[in-house]
Design a protein around this nucleic acid. Structure first.
Lengths: 253, 253
DNA sequence: TCTTTTCAAAAGTATGATTTTATGATCTTC
DNA sequence: GAAGATCATAAAATCATACTTTTGAAAAGA
């Protein structure tokens, strides 16, 4: 389940393994367990979470695989500094998302999107097949719908950006789609429930401009159009954050 | 142990857990186990690797955490399509690296570097502290050394680029340092053992230009200087690959 | 034919024991 | 007394086995 979807539905954990991973991962990324500390031993944690050692250790392996912790014999399992965390991992990003969104975070997110997505659009303008372009227009057409809710708009938006990442052909671009989803999950959470028809029209127009640029094999135009879409999204989020709203965390939702 | 270091030393795995993870991960990323296939059951794999079910399952959790596989009750553990793989994960990147380097891969790598690193340099030009700049010059100074081996040059190179990613302040940029390391590991592996003094001089100059741009708080210049460094590196790799050399895999090394 | 029940395969969970590893203290040697 | 070797120990790593839950698919019933 993606970040956007879970931001919409608000669903919770399933298996006990996933529970432990989410609990520890979220605690670490949010800073409730601070960097450099040694986690409690197996015995204590198995009691706290009421799970077997098997589940606990598998959860630890999962967290270690994402760069959050590092076990060491005799000393214990240490929480690694945040520059070892893999922020391109959907889970890590989700936990960061849960920890609360502030201006700094959204700025960094926009910065990395402005670095990656225009480049992806440029690559797509060069490498996309005819089928790709048809598919892209098909997604863009979905913006043009009278009965759009904020959720449905966000989903179409996500589909559009993911399609471009795919069309770029670059596997690294595709691996970065979690970032895009995070940005859209934020804008969904912050946006006022009733999006105005004009705003929807504007979003549709801006995206259509990207599709046109790619269809006409014009990388420069694709870059410019993509930059514009991201800029608009960022300024909307910034406006929501500065207009008296307090940084929102999932626990307060 | 980073990708560059292991490319230099050529050291191997240690624990049996790491062994299983590396074996399966490498097989999947290289395509020896093709996408969509169901992995053999626990019993068969425990026998093949001669390990207990515990370590096998922990290895599976590690691979699942990196997006390579997904378990499902009753059907088995499926190898996920490559667009689910996290290519920003150092291990995944390392396995891709081991699978063999071709022109396409290095092009994609350069493309993503050209998207990310100039942006990081621009951010660094704006946000770097005085201490950061001093530290950056200290690294740049290390290029200027008579007795440089290809390894030592690659290490300084890596340090320099990582420093800039750090100075950008953007956690996403920092998470992408694995990509930089991959690129340098490739250029180290492909480069002729005896680098000419002129080439070293040129590399030092180009990097110094980045440092100057950041020190003078000039984002545009920083972007241009960084682009140039990456372009030079890419064309050097391309030349090595096209000049009669066959794509190199670690097994043939 | 379609729905429901049942079954079994595979993942998930639990428990206890044994082995490896690395720190820090102790002991030896010079 | 300082440098180095040795050992005790805490924690992770590994092993072996048993039990539970999930779920796709086949079998039974309507």
């Amino acid at each position: 389940m993606g970040l956007l979807e879970s931001a919409i539905t608000g669903k919770k954990r399933s298996s006990s393994h996933a529970h432990v991973v989410a609990e520890l991962g979220s605690s670490i990324v949010s800073g409730r367990i601070s960097v450099g500390t040694i986690l409690p031993g197996d015995n204590e944690l198995t009691q706290r979470f009421n799970v077997s050692r098997t589940v606990l250790r598998e959860a630890m392996k999962t967290l270690a695989a994402k760069g959050l912790i590092e076990p060491k014999a005799k000393v214990g399992t240490r929480v690694l500094p945040s520059d070892k965390w893999n922020f391109f991992d959907p889970d890590v990003l989700g936990w960061r998302f849960d920890a609360g969104i502030d201006q700094t975070f959204t700025d960094y997110l926009a910065e990395i999107r402005l670095a990656l997505e225009p480049a992806a659009a440029a690559a797509a303008a060069i490498r996309a097949t005819s089928d790709d372009i048809v598919a892209l227009y098909a997604i863009a057409a979905k913006f043009d719908n009278l009965s759009h809710t904020p959720e449905s708009i966000a989903k179409v938006d996500l589909d559009f950006h993911i399609a471009i990442a795919r069309m770029s052909g670059n596997p690294f671009m595709r691996s970065a789609t979690a970032l895009i989803e995070a940005a859209l999950a934020i804008s969904f959470r912050l946006s006022s429930p009733a999006a105005s028809p004009e705003m929807i029209d504007a979003i549709a127009d801006n995206h259509l401009r990207i599709a046109h640029a790619i269809a006409s094999r014009d990388p420069e135009k694709a870059v410019a159009a993509m930059r514009h879409v991201i800029d608009v999204g960022r300024s909307r989020i910034t406006r929501c954050l500065t207009e008296g709203q307090i940084p929102i965390s999932s626990t307060s939702a």
